[in-house]
Simulated assay, not measured.
Amino acid sequence: MEEFKALWAENIDAKVETTVRTFKKEDLPEGEVLIEVHYSSVNYKDGLAGTNPKSGVIRNYPMILGIDLSGVVVESLDPAFGAGDEVIVTGYGLGVNHFGGFSQYARVPAAWVVPLPEGLSLREAMIIGTAGYTAAESVDALDKQGIQPQTGTVLVTGASGGVGGMAIAMLKRLGYTVEAMSRKKADCMDYLKGLGAEAVLHPEEVALEKKRPLAQQRWAAIVDPVGGPMLPDLLAQLHYGGCLALSGNAGGIAFEATVLPFILRGVKLVGIDSVNHPYAERIKLWERMASNLKPENLELLAEQEIALEDLPAAFRKIMDGKMHGRTLVKVKQGI
């Protein structure tokens, strides 16, 4: 491997400029494992990094973007991995402060590398990607809080997005009754029901007309990758002992609520961090995503498959809220 292609992002005059350019092996950062990347995916965080230099995702441009990847080990200084091993990398500093997955080759610390579990292909691993990992972590959090299929209905917000769609499919696979909330209700009804949603709600059907800290108890649990000012309305409508797993801020970083849902109904607000989730837990979750958490309709979640050159348009699409499901990036051509 003398030269390879990657998506290069620069902050030029307070705007992010992205180009596919050529690199050499010595341009890669330090790390014990060199990987030939086969697939990556487009996540909301990638969209922010590729369009908004003030988003806070990347503090120091330039950068090779891409917060996840799957591929094959080419070289390894760590005996845990050898040439030919199929692997996954998500989270940590990938594509944020360390050259990322929108690149034909990546060199990363061995502590970030997860062996591809039996039951998943490299392609399937990136249909799941960071969004699916976040969804799986959210579903696992509900389980740890005692939320079982018989406990009651689970609401998934931001349902047309990657995390939301994955959460619906995973919950359905486990036997939960799921309702989906999406601003794109009219356009995505069939898609969301195909993933496993029993009902699809517009946010206006969920928001409280009169704001109050406690309202009718509608859901046993909520998977919320959106966040923002609607969070208090969601907490107010949880069952006694219910749980909300919060993983995103697409709706905003601030909300105003009271302590009443917590001290009068015993509800739990659980934060989901997919970036620094402990390695041992990552291994367990990826094993589950290759078995009982693997969506039965995984291909339905893959809206499109694109090349590195198509990424700037994909960033605009996800930031404009026009993307549903997952966008797979085929980095290695001819596979």
Rank of each mutant, 00 (worst) to 15 (best):
E10A: 10
V20W: 08
D27I: 01
I35S: 06
E36D: 07
S41M: 04
L69Y: 06
V73F: 03
D78A: 12
A80E: 15
G82K: 15
V87K: 04
V89H: 08
F99D: 15
G100I: 02
Q104M: 00
A106D: 08
V113S: 05
R123S: 03
G129E: 04
G132T: 01
A135T: 03
G146V: 10
T151R: 13
V156R: 12
M166H: 15
L171Q: 13
K172H: 07
T177E: 15
A180G: 11
R183P: 01
K184W: 00
K184H: 11
K185L: 07
A186E: 15
D187H: 07
M189C: 05
G194H: 11
A197I: 11
V200L: 12
L201E: 07
K210W: 10
Q216P: 06
Q216R: 14
R218G: 07
A220F: 13
I222N: 11
D224G: 06
G227M: 03
Q237W: 06
Q237H: 09
L238Q: 14
G241N: 13
C243N: 12
L246G: 05
V259D: 05
F262L: 08
L264T: 14
R265E: 12
L269F: 09
D273K: 09
R282A: 03
R282Y: 08
I306R: 04
A307R: 13
A314Y: 02
F315T: 03
G325R: 09
T327C: 12
V331Y: 10
I335L: 12
